[in-house]
């Protein structure tokens, strides 16, 4: 195995040569490309990448351009995971038979699949589950923007309660999405995956640490990355990092990792906890919650987030 890239601080990190190119067609201020850059720059090993249909895929492979400087494949909406698992299986088989080309010698390529929350929580779920059950040596990264942003903002099973989307519009009779967000990380941990973690682009150091740990882990790794969506969450493009900060500091999106399916570790504890109200108020998709008839939902939200944080802390303590 090749040596892990040493990244002590941001200045060190900034000497990385980006393998993701600009002039992709993602919206200005999109968090997807921030996440992808942080992941790709976390290693110097060759990368074999795939992407499920979604914002990232349609915007980085617009004919006749590609934005990827490494091998990259797109097949279908549901099978980013299986495409990369297939590549990984072939690599292993050829290695075992000694049939790898000479240029591969001494290198340890990393296999990474990217998918949006639609491709991960809903459409590609069965395929990801299969990959994790078979135990491929790969990483699956879910870019979780809590909505089908590519097709115009339909709800997915990652959309949190109270969010207004085009298929769950808020108005006189409805406060928007009525279902809770699916707890994908626990589901993936329940597969017995050696490493699953939640990351956010604004905490780049935490992100790089987890990605490097994921690369060093043998077996399937699941990463859930919060990706603030300027278009569908409805905030100004320059606020992407500020909104991400609000999400991690209000504990709406807690940063933690689970090893071997059980050992939970919280990796970020905000010094100053921000009320959930601030997080909701900063986004257009929650603005109806501030009308008198729906305001009770903000308290419900706060209770839900507090209960979740309490649960995570207890699990960390008990280490089960």
């Amino acid at each position: 195995m090749s040596e892990m890239k040493k990244i002590k601080n941001l200045k060190d990190f900034s000497t990385s040569a980006d393998r993701f190119e600009g002039a992709n067609l993602l919206c200005p201020g999109c968090a997807h490309s921030i996440i992808v850059r942080e992941i790709l720059n976390a290693t110097n090993d060759p990368l074999i990448l795939s992407a499920a249909t979604g914002c990232l895929e349609v915007c980085t492979a617009v004919y006749p351009y590609t934005s990827w400087d490494n091998s990259w494949i797109h097949i279908g909406f549901e099978n980013a995971s299986t495409a990369i698992a297939g590549a990984e299986a072939m690599y292993k088989a050829r290695k075992r038979k000694g049939k790898l080309p000479a240029s591969c010698e001494g290198k340890s390529p990393k296999f990474v699949a990217f998918g949006g929350d639609g491709a991960t929580y809903d459409i590609g779920f069965q395929w990801i589950s299969g990959c994790f059950e078979r135990g491929h040596d790969m990483m699956y990264v879910c870019l979780d923007n809590e909505v089908y942003a590519n097709t115009g903002g339909q709800r997915s099973s990652s959309t949190p309660i109270g969010a207004s989307t085009v298929t769950t519009p808020a108005g006189r009779v409805s406060y928007g999405e009525k279902m809770m967000k699916k707890d994908m990380l626990s589901i993936m941990a329940a597969h017995g995956a050696p490493y699953v973690a939640q990351v956010a682009p604004n905490k780049w150091k935490d992100m790089v640490k987890k990605i490097q740990k994921g690369f060093a882990t043998e077996g399937p790794v699941f990463i859930n990355a919060m990706s603030a969506c300027t278009t569908e969450w409805k905030f100004a493009p320059d606020d992407t990092i500020a909104i991400s900060d609000l999400a991690t500091d209000s504990l709406v999106f807690p940063l933690y990792e689970i090893e071997n399916g059980t050992k939970l570790t919280i990796t970020y504890r905000p010094k100053n906890k921000v009320p959930v109200r601030d997080y909701l108020g900063a986004q257009g998709r929650f603005k109806h919650l501030f009308k008198p008839q729906y305001e009770y939902l903000i308290d419900e939200w706060q209770k839900m987030v507090d209960a979740r944080w309490e649960y995570l802390q207890r699990r960390e303590e008990a280490s089960v």
Partner: peptide, 14 residues
């Protein structure tokens, strides 16, 4: 550099 989504901040030698 780290938060630019479009690889448009050019940094060399820190």
């Amino acid at each position: 550099w780290i938060y630019c989504p479009d690889v448009s901040i050019i940094s060399r030698d820190k």
